[in-house]
């Protein structure tokens, strides 16, 4: 048993994780005739808590409770994996990425997230404003405008051979490349790295 725990505590390779994520597609279809998509949960949260008479949030969200239950599961899964089968070693990062990020001012490479950025101390600072507030806003606004995120478009949409999802995915990547390779450096300098 201990050997098994040690074994699954190592980081899982892409060829294990990818197919497992892909299997979520048929699992949801067969379990409940549901299309995979996670950003919808954010819309349901709006529809439940702050619909404010906006037509976009006026729909039968009770029928979509499954989606919120699913993301609650994702949260619990994150807790389970981190608490019971967490990788004891530091994350192994490509040396070029590590060098580039060090040049940008990142110093802590020990966990899955850099504590230089993602800590409560940064909440009411320029770092927090950019990385939590602005970043989160762009994710929420952009995914809803695009009608889906990596799960709804890149995985579910392309898997069902729908070209609009391929277009969306190409623009996800373009936005990401532009931010990472062009804007991120100046932005980090601006917020005090």
């Amino acid at each position: 048993m201990n050997q098994f725990i040690d074994w699954i505590s190592q980081p899982w390779p892409w060829y294990v994780a990818g197919p497992m994520i892909g299997l979520t597609v048929p699992a949801l279809l067969i379990l409940g005739n549901k299309s995979f998509g996670i950003s919808s949960s954010l819309r349901h949260a709006c529809a439940i808590c702050i619909p404010a008479g906006i037509p976009f949030f006026n729909y039968n969200w009770r029928k979509e409770m499954w989606n919120l239950v699913f993301v609650l599961g994702v949260l619990i899964g994150g807790f389970v994996a981190t608490t019971f089968i967490s990788n004891p070693d530091e994350i192994v990062l490509a040396s070029k990425t590590q060098a580039d990020l060090t040049a940008l001012g990142i110093t802590d490479f020990s966990g899955l997230m850099p504590s230089d950025i993602f800590s409560w101390e940064n909440l009411f600072t320029a770092k927090g404003l950019v990385f939590f507030v602005l970043g989160g806003f762009l994710v929420g606004f952009g995914t809803r405008y695009a009608g889906g995120c990596t799960s709804g478009h890149a995985i579910m949409g392309i898997s069902s051979l729908q070209w609009p999802s391929l277009v969306a995915t190409i623009f996800f990547m373009l936005g990401g490349f532009l931010m990472t390779l062009v804007f991120l450096g100046p932005l980090m300098k601006l917020v005090g790295f």
Partner: peptide
Amino acid sequence: IFGLGWAI
């Protein structure tokens, strides 16, 4: 727009 946020 989502891509920009994804990278941040």
